[in-house]
Design a protein around this nucleic acid. Sequence first.
DNA 1: TCCAAGTGGCC
DNA 2: GTTGTGC
DNA 3: GCACAACGGCCACTTGGA
Length: 566
Amino acid sequence: MATSFRVLTDFGLRMAGTRSRRALRQLAAEALTAVTPDEVEQTARLLIGKAFPAAEQAALRLSAAAVWRTLEPIFGQPKDVLQRQTTGAVDFASGVRTIFLNLPKQRGICAEETEALTVGEVYATLVQIAALGGGGSRGEKELLLRELLCRADPDEAAFLVRNVVGEMRHGVNEGLLLEGIALAIDADFALVQRAFMLVGDVGTLAVLALSEGTAVLERLEIGLFTPLRPMLAQAVDDVPAAWVRQAGALALEYKLDGARVQIHKRGGEVRLYTRHLMEITASLPEVVEAVRTQITAETAILEGEVVAVGADGAVLPFPELMRRFRRVRDVPRLLAEAPVRVYLFDLLLRDGRSLLESTNAERWGELTQVLAAGSVLILTPRCLPVTVEEGAAFFDQAIDAGHEGLVAKRLEGLYTPGVRGGEWLKIKEALTVELVITAAEWGYGRRTGWLSNYHLAARDIVTGALVEVGKTFKGLTDEEFAEVTTALLDLTTDPEAHTVTVPPEIIVEVAFNQIQLSPSYPGGVALRFARIVRFRPEKTLDEIDTLQTLRDIYTMQSGQPWQQAA
DNA sequence: TCCAAGTGGCC
DNA sequence: GTTGTGC
DNA sequence: GCACAACGGCCACTTGGA
């Protein structure tokens, strides 16, 4: 019996009205068991708003703009008229719900009497949409979406739109869905978590768990060409903090500013995957070739950080790497223009033997054994500090060499995202500058009603003008957002605009990790990972930092001269 | 042929 | 990617 | 301690239209 899509929508609504994680986990479990076995995978994906596994290249390639174009014919109104219906809505999908509640669908476009949508139909249509490409495909995709929306009630429409934009915002995401799976089959969460790491995809895991049960999960093993979820690091302030957390039994490794890669090798066959399990083998042929020649093991799964390098061998800023990443056109040309290098730091499989039960120290030892000398694959600089001071010196060395900082790894730690966390700790350098708020954007979701995203400007000492160098929505408490909103509304003359401009009066200290060259900001530089750390009411406008200072920081950090980007 | 808008995926 | 919130 | 939801800048690619 096909489950009605309305059933899923109702679970979404109940989740949205629930805060307790225990209860959310319970709802996730209920949802998975409420549908038929062949709907479990679809249900798992639709519930968290990720229709397709990252490892597959499939994507809807449809978003808010496409939804507006789809809604126009359904209601026979232009976008701006529809948009007027949505004032006060908490977010985009809620606004769509309001439109469905208040406006009649066009008879000529949508049939009056229709069958209720089923889970399988909705999912199958999304698969169809994802499969479309080439000339005219935009219209075809929107037509398929329109057919679904025609048959949807207001709540179903909102649920669908949340899937299109990929943000459910009902409190259940991947993590809680995994907990729900564990609950549904009465398994240990650790078992489900381990299984997830190995299969890499919640949909696949949900079917496996619900239909096969715990015994199959227990038997899962690491497999070649099935990328696994990479282990992540928690942020800490400095080396002493990491030292305390890991009781002095740790390795410190350089943290390079590139992209994570997982390398799978069986003989001459090599594939490369990103952190989100996308395959990028075709973009990095020199890495593939280097794996063939430099990795002496017959089969291996390795992890490392890929970075772009200059002619002199120096590591280049992150955007240089992005020119290579996921590139399919002109690969040979870029290969010469922006060569890459991989700094290896882990080995998870060696000659058919899983190293998941081995400690970090053991895995590193094996890694050093399988790597032959060469220029493309090299070991990540690593040290085993005997004292905190030695560790701190290693951190300074990493920063001086132009890198992000360090990752601290507990020597006895296994390769698991461990429930306790903290097996890997990242330590990065943050700088701060004084900037002034020149505008702010209204927030959505839990930030509805607050000005939430602040435009930040520095002084250009040549022209004397204020120049925007970035935006931030981070670093303030709810209370502070409320206060700043009031203050900004006091200053502005156009509180109705989406972007509220204000005279430059509120000066803030802003932390950031890097200055990057910017093709879009007028000063040619932008802050990376900006967050507000404090208000500086005692400062005056002529005391804020200058554009020229930011450019100097760029030069200092990257080793590259500042220049206006193309 | 080139450009802009839209979308997805890195950090 | 960073941060604050709430369980 | 953990999961989630707020959203940042940049680059590659696709599509549709001038």
